[in-house]
Nucleic acid binder design. Structure first.
Lengths: 142, 142
DNA sequence: TTTACTGCAAATCTTTTGCATCAAC
DNA sequence: GTTGATGCAAAAGATTTGCAGTAAA
């Protein structure tokens, strides 16, 4: 859990208080290999600490985003999901049939980024881009 | 307005009724060069026909989507926008500073699509992909 | 005449906010 | 003891839904 401790000291360092709620939100995000929604984090935290309010989850996520500890990805359909920032930049192949998310290394899209920059003078923010479609498994089912 | 008429006959053909509300929603989408939100369509329709309800707009958009007459693009941040299907596939460079949307031809991303297919067995649905970042003008301002 | 479509109001769902209380420091 | 953080309730914004009346066919 070294990342977890790092994040906690980062909070203290910046003058923020270390509350059980914040520790549990961090834990929920960092221990989870997948991308989680505010709702899911709330459910996980509430399992141990039943009266945490979902507004606290949102406020904590806002803070952690500001500190650069977690990253937000908009997977479309109004769903926003979170994951630890230290996992690095990557993209998502989101299967619209089964909902599975395949991670895609950042390097895969760097040629695209370069091209948009040169041809369109557009500085693309490709952190955590979501690409929708159908995964191999679901294609076979048909 | 040939597209408009096409769409109307498409509706009749499928056994749906031709109501003034439906005609006006179609008109609002097809006459607008940009991508519009349900809210904007409602405002435009309400200008002529004040008591149309926004729920009718949503129901109509749902129907037109089902019939393949309009396409929906999720531009992130919970904003969903619509445009006529016949305008063809293209992508969007969305500037997060000024909100401007630059259209990008489909061909630009076809190498990416091919690669995802071959390397990841993933059939990417790249219709109307939105890529966020900062446009040339806004970069100069800094 | 028939029944799909609409307007209205209310319900959902997700996220945000005001405020009094509480707890980390 | 201070002041930032939390819980609660209510608000806000976008979309959906139930239902009874209305109009397209």
């Amino acid at each position: 859990m070294e990342h977890h401790d790092d994040s906690l000291s980062r909070l203290r360092e910046k003058g923020y208080r270390l509350t059980p709620q914040r520790m549990m939100v961090l834990e929920a995000i960092e221990d989870n290999p997948n991308h989680v929604s505010a709702e899911e984090i709330h459910a996980q935290v509430a399992a141990k600490y039943p009266n945490v309010n979902i507004s606290t989850i949102y406020r904590t996520l806002e803070l952690l985003k500001k500190l650069g500890l977690v990253t937000e990805t908009d997977l479309g359909g109004g769903r926003v999901r979170y994951h630890p920032a230290e996992k690095g930049h990557h993209h998502h192949l989101v299967c619209q049939q089964c909902g599975n998310v395949i991670d895609l290394d950042e390097s895969v899209l760097s040629p695209l980024k370069k091209m948009l920059n040169e041809e369109y003078k557009f500085a693309a923010d490709l952190r955590h881009l979501a690409i929708f479609g159908t995964c191999g498994k679901c294609r076979q089912k048909k």
